[in-house]
């Protein structure tokens, strides 16, 4: 209970720190929101009036908390470039990025756990070694290059999808999902390779420990030793890794969206940075950061459930 409270406290502090950081960062940008709204040719008097109106003359922390408050209630300001509310811009894109992220994450789990189990069980077989080496190679391919390779091989050579032929979820959900399969694959494969490697090394090192011998001495079969004893220990670092991976995938999808021309948060973020559309940039970064922190909280809690040594005292 105390531990959970502590985690929750950490979570809140990190959210505050991170949002404060985002807020400060965008406060530092030369030229304030009033200038951005009125243009650089506005008279100083008009600017002053605008500042007053926008609440920019209030003390720093007042401005921060009012920003944070309205942010949480969905008021994220108005886009400089499009003049529409940031909230409506983000809302329509959220399902796209979220679907891509989740698909990629499911692929990582589905690919890495069976392969990791297989290659630790039959570590001497040729196939396990092939997995090792190809995993190492795949890990070194930058995600955007892997995206390009996937586009070229599956899209242009094998015609399994049409590069650039993204269909939005509200038009045709089936086509939307089938288009996202390949981008998700491009995100997932290197991460799956890493998690396979980690699961394998973790199982192998756990198998050397004394408690495994104890388990055998009680008449457990090899299978039971693996599933009832070794795996319960070996998954702990893998779970952490998967949590970090989920956070990484959120960020990695930004790049992959660019490669596959998917109009999600990533493309919006990049174009907004290019257009200096700060309210949009600020909102996206704050949202992603909060998703990431939330995932970290989940990982921490899972960790404590799995490892009794971390519970309590």
């Amino acid at each position: 209970m105390k531990a959970v409270l502590k985690k929750l406290l950490t979570f809140i502090i990190t959210v505050l720190l991170v949002t404060l950081f985002v807020f400060v960062a965008f406060e530092m940008i030369p030229g304030d929101a009033a200038t951005a709204r009125l243009g650089i040719n506005a008279t100083p008097e008009a600017l002053e009036k605008m500042r007053e109106e926008m609440g920019l003359t209030r003390p720093f922390f007042v401005r921060y908390f009012s920003w944070l408050g309205s942010f949480f209630f969905g008021d994220m300001g108005v886009s400089y470039s499009y003049g529409v509310s940031v909230r409506s811009m983000l809302a329509s894109k959220l399902p796209i990025t979220l679907t891509l992220t989740l698909m990629a994450f499911i692929m990582v789990v589905v690919l890495s756990i069976p392969i990791g189990l297989y290659s630790s069980k039959y570590e001497d077989r040729v196939f396990a070694k092939v997995i090792d080496v190809s995993g190492q190679l795949v890990m070194s391919i930058p995600p955007f290059f892997l995206g390009i390779l996937v586009t070229y091989v599956f899209g242009m050579l094998l015609h399994m999808f049409t590069p650039g032929g993204f269909v939005s979820y509200d038009i045709n959900f089936g086509k939307f999902i089938s288009y996202l399969i390949f981008p998700a694959l491009a995100i997932a494969v290197p991460k799956a390779a890493m998690s396979t490697k980690l699961l394998k090394t973790s199982i192998l090192s756990e198998r050397r420990l004394d408690y495994v011998r104890t388990a055998y001495s009680r008449g457990n079969s090899t299978m039971d030793v693996l599933y009832k004893h070794v795996l319960k220990n070996a998954v702990i670092p893998v779970i952490t890794f998967l949590g970090m991976t989920l956070a990484d995938i959120v960020a990695g999808s930004l790049v992959i969206e660019q490669v596959f021309s998917i109009p999600g948060y990533g493309r919006l973020l990049i174009s907004s940075i290019a257009n200096r559309d700060y309210p949009v940039v600020q909102a996206i970064i704050a949202i992603i950061a909060m998703i990431v922190i939330f995932i970290n909280l989940l990982v921490d809690v899972t960790y404590q459930v799995l490892d009794p040594r971390l519970r309590g005292n």
Partner: peptide, 26 residues
């Protein structure tokens, strides 16, 4: 499979390191 029937039932073992011979998560 017969050996496993004997292990733990007829022949049991106590090991040297009490710190590491027990599974930490059970």
């Amino acid at each position: 499979s017969r050996l496993r029937k004997i292990q733990g039932d007829d022949i049991a073992v106590v090991f040297q390191e009490p710190m590491t011979s027990l599974n930490p998560v059970l």
